[in-house]
C-alpha cells in the first residue's frame, strides 16, 4: 500500500520523466513495427550500449553547465583535445613493440593527462565566466575554438591512430558481459545524480540557477560554485573523449562535431531548463536512450546521416513548442 503511494508520488513529482519513458516506448514500438527483424536483434542493442555513453556523458556535461543558466559549447573541443593529449603522450612513451603493448602505469598516466586536460579546460571556462564576466555562450564559443585549434596544432590535421590495448578496453571491452563504456556511464551518472541531489554543491547549483539574486543574498558563494560546475563539465567531457578515442582507436580534432547540437537537444529534451535551476541526470539519461533508439532505427531504415540531422533539428523545435505549450496550460 505504502509503496504504491510512493510510486504515484514519484509520478506526480516528475511528470517529465513519465513523458520521456512514454516517448521512449513509442519510439521503440514504431521502430520495431517498421523493421522487426533488424531492429530487435541483440547485436543492435549491444552496439547502442557502446555508442551511447559518449553522447550521454556529453549531454550530462551540458546539463551541468545549464543548471546555472549557462551553456558549454566547448565540450566537443575538450573531449577531442583530451584524447589527443593522451594519444600524443602514448606515442612519446611507445616502445619498439608499438603503442598497443604500453604498460598499465603509462595508460593510467594517460588517463590522468586526459582528465587533467578536461579539468584545466573547464577551469579556464569557469574563470572566464566568473572572473572576466564573459557570457557563457561567447566564452565557451571562444575556448572551443582554442581547444579545437590546439588539437589541430598538436596533430597537424590528421588523426592520431593507435592507442594502448588497456585504453581501448575502456571503449571496446566488456565487464560481466556488459559494454565497459556503458558500465562507466551508469556509474558516473549515479555519481553525478548523487552529487546534484544530495550534496551541498548540487543543491547550491540548483539554487543559483533558480534565482541568482536570492542565492547571493542567502550567502552562497556563486563564483566558486559556477567555477566548480564548469570544471565538472570539463572532466565529464574529457571522459567522453577517453571513451571516444578508446572505441575508435583514434583521436582527431574534428571528431563528433555533430554531438554538440545533439548534446544540447538531449539536455533540453531531458527536462533541463536552459535558463537554469532545473535538470535531472535521470531525465537526460532516458532522453539519450530514446534518441539513440531513434537514430539507430533510422540507420537501419537506411536514412542518410543528413536526414537524421534534419530529424534531430525538427525534434528539438517540437520539444521547445511542446514544453511551452505544457507550461502555459499549467
Amino acid at each position: 500500500m505504502k509503496r504504491e503511494l510512493d510510486f504515484r508520488n514519484l509520478l506526480n513529482k516528475d511528470n517529465n520523466i513519465v513523458q520521456l519513458i512514454a516517448m521512449t516506448i513509442l519510439i521503440f514500438v514504431v521502430m520495431t513495427a517498421l523493421s522487426p527483424d533488424k531492429f530487435l536483434r541483440y547485436y543492435n542493442f549491444e552496439s547502442i550500449t557502446y555508442t551511447f555513453p559518449e553522447l550521454g556523458l556529453l549531454s550530462i556535461a551540458m546539463m551541468i553547465a545549464m543548471l546555472t543558466g549557462g551553456i558549454d559549447l566547448s565540450v566537443i573541443g575538450i573531449a577531442n583535445l583530451s584524447g589527443i593529449f593522451a594519444g600524443v603522450m602514448f606515442k612519446k612513451f611507445a616502445t619498439d613493440a608499438g603503442v598497443a603493448d604500453t604498460g598499465f602505469g603509462i595508460v593510467l598516466l594517460g588517463g590522468v593527462v586526459a582528465l587533467g586536460t578536461g579539468l584545466v579546460a573547464g577551469a579556464l571556462n569557469g574563470l572566464l565566466i566568473t572572473r572576466l564576466k564573459i557570457t557563457p555562450i561567447l566564452a565557451t564559443l571562444g575556448t572551443g575554438q582554442v581547444f579545437t585549434g590546439l588539437a589541430i596544432v598538436m596533430t597537424g590535421g590528421p588523426a592520431i591512430v593507435g592507442f594502448p590495448e588497456a585504453w581501448a578496453f575502456i571503449g571496446n571491452g566488456k565487464i560481466f558481459g556488459l559494454a565497459t563504456p556503458f558500465v562507466l556511464f551508469v556509474v558516473l551518472a549515479c555519481l553525478i545524480a548523487f552529487m546534484l541531489r544530495r550534496t551541498t554543491f548540487g543543491i547550491n547549483l540548483m539554487l543559483i540557477g533558480t534565482n541568482p539574486k536570492a542565492a547571493l543574498f542567502a550567502g552562497l558563494k556563486r563564483e566558486k560554485m559556477v567555477l566548480l560546475s564548469y570544471m565538472l563539465t570539463g572532466v565529464m567531457a574529457s571522459i567522453a573523449g577517453i571513451i571516444l578515442s578508446g572505441r575508435t582507436n583514434a583521436a582527431k580534432s574534428d571528431y563528433g562535431t555533430s554531438y554538440l547540437l545533439q548534446a544540447v537537444l538531449i539536455a533540453v529534451l531531458g527536462g533541463t531548463n536552459p535558463a537554469g535551476g532545473r535538470g535531472t541526470v535521470l531525465g537526460v539519461s532516458i532522453a539519450v536512450a530514446a534518441l539513440m533508439l531513434l537514430s539507430s532505427g533510422f540507420q537501419i531504415l537506411r536514412f542518410s546521416n543528413h536526414l537524421i540531422d534534419f530529424i534531430w533539428g525538427v525534434f528539438l523545435l517540437l520539444v521547445i513548442a511542446l514544453n511551452a505549450y505544457k507550461n502555459r496550460s499549467r
Binding site: L261, V264, L265, F303, S304, N305, H306, L307, I308, D309, F310, I311, W312, G313, V314, L316, L317, I320
Partner: peptide, 15 residues
C-alpha cells in the same frame, strides 16, 4: 532555437 533550425535546414538540404 537557431541551433535547431540550422541543423534542420542543413540536414534537409543535404539529405
Amino acid at each position: 532555437v537557431t541551433l535547431g533550425t540550422g541543423s534542420m535546414v542543413r540536414g534537409f538540404l543535404l539529405g
